[in-house]
Write a protein that binds this DNA or RNA. Structure first.
Lengths: 138, 138
DNA sequence: TATGTATACTTGTATTGTACAACTAGATAA
DNA sequence: TTATCTAGTTGTACAATACAAGTATACATA
């Protein structure tokens, strides 16, 4: 394994994170809203605990975020019939609309960003990114 | 350009950012310390304004960070002889030692992370990342 | 040269996202 | 029945950030 390859990866990852984590907004939604709505729309109704574990955040953090999104009408609380302590959240129509719009905006931006890449480069990069992300988990 | 490629990239980028931006620590230094020391050690002595513009942060943010690092003895303030309003900062011996150690730790971690990749995959990924980062700038 | 404006930075204040600790209510086990 | 466990909420604290106001110095021009 070549040290200079690792050094390049280290540097470029730091740069990428620094740049992108400053983007407070993703297609008109703030980062936590976008990721939470996206996750909920994929996973279907789940509770605070499951979301916290998915995002590796404290449950108190997620609890506050769901409170805000519920107040905005983007998600709806469904009391769990089996367990009086917990609720599951589902994305409302309004929330779906918002996250769809945000996704559209993001895809348009990415189309710009990657416009000079070949299909093959985009696929390769996406696949390697996915692989890296899967490795992080272990 | 294929929509599914863009969707994969969008999703995997969000995941990567979410995961890595939660790492408060990079090899024993917090993120701002690591990036600031790295930048200073590359660029040589510069002032608050130049650092802020490099990082795209408010100068007040950098001003506070340099204050902290100076107090810790990681950087040293050099009054600019040409301009009484400004100072340049340079990394001290102590700071150099810290950032070197942090870099070692990060490279070791990356060696783990990418240990099942081929040299070619690492190089390709690094090159595509670098390209993406350069595109962000424009 | 005097004075007004621009610049580099610092400091006060507010916001946001986060974690930890204490607490509440309901579930489960002995 | 009582003790313990669990899901979630709320109080508090902290770090990173931006914006606004303030200070000291530099620069431009009348």
């Amino acid at each position: 394994m070549k040290t200079e390859d690792l050094e390049l990866l280290d540097y470029e990852l730091v740069v990428l994170i620094r740049r992108t984590s400053l983007d407070k907004e993703l297609g008109g939604l703030d980062r936590s809203t976008y990721t939470l709505l996206t996750q909920l729309s994929k996973s279907g109704p789940v509770g605070v605990k499951a979301l916290a574990s998915e995002f590796r955040l404290d449950i108190s953090t997620i609890s506050r975020q769901t409170t805000v999104l519920e107040a905005k009408g983007y998600i709806r609380r469904l009391p769990d019939p089996m367990d009086g302590r917990s609720s599951n959240f589902e994305v409302t129509e309004e929330g779906m609309y918002r996250v769809m719009e945000a996704k559209k905006a993001r895809l348009a931006r990415h189309a710009q960003l990657f416009k000079d890449w070949t299909d093959e480069e985009r696929q390769t990069f996406g696949a390697l990114l996915a692989r890296l992300n899967r490795t992080f988990i272990e």
